[in-house]
Amino acid sequence: MTATTLDTSAGAARTVPALPLYAMHVRMLVLETLRVPIAVIGTMVFPALSLLFFVVPNRGVADDPVFATQAVVSLSVFAVMVSALFNLGLTIAENREKPWDPYLRSLPLPAAVRISAQLTATAMLSFLSLVPVLIVGALATEATVSVLGLIAGLAVLALTSIPFLLLGASIGYAFSSKAAIAIIQVGMFGFAFGGGLFFPPQFFPEWLETLSRFFPSRHARELTLAAVEGTTPELWMLAGALAWTLATAALAVWLYRRDEGRRYR
């Protein structure tokens, strides 16, 4: 009878389109996070406090429009990076230890849809954490930016934060939540110092300046700064950012596919 052919087609053919499925996952991930507000507030407050305590009292920086703008851009990159690494890395690592994630993997859910939904939801929350940084920067320092510069800066920041999101996801898929916290903390401050987010790279010794050019945090900083100031970015910045994006994307997809959740269940 026809049952055989019918079942074969049912096995492989009829699936839902990826876009509405992606939108549904983003919506539920954002809802889940927003309903535990303490998680959101933590990441929102930390970078703004750094700006308030380390930059604002240093009037040599805060009163100089160029240095102040650099500092605000650096801490904006820091804010987005922390949020991306922490929220995504830790959330994914924790979720892998809970039984809901394995259940989602039993659904007809392509890896790319789940990963991109997780990236999008985290990116949306990351940009929330920018708001206090920009407010403190505008009110308490001489940092200036044109409207066009602000828009361009935000767009470039969004693009250059993708490697951090993918790296956060990779850490989440590769490690337990306890190990992930440790790795993210070390990595986060390494990236922050090495990328010139806490001290401007122009004050780096030469060897560190050279090394710094391989850090994704440095690429994000320089490219965002270039967009804000309307200068032309250098080739190494673009090449570096692109290389990190591609490498971390491949890593995240590979680790997701390899991951089988918690052992022994």
Partner: peptide, 15 residues
């Protein structure tokens, strides 16, 4: 994932 379009499963209730 396409092979799982006609599969239904239960999560653990704690999930």
């Amino acid at each position: 994932p396409r092979r799982r379009a006609r599969l239904g499963s239960t999560p653990q209730e704690t999930a």
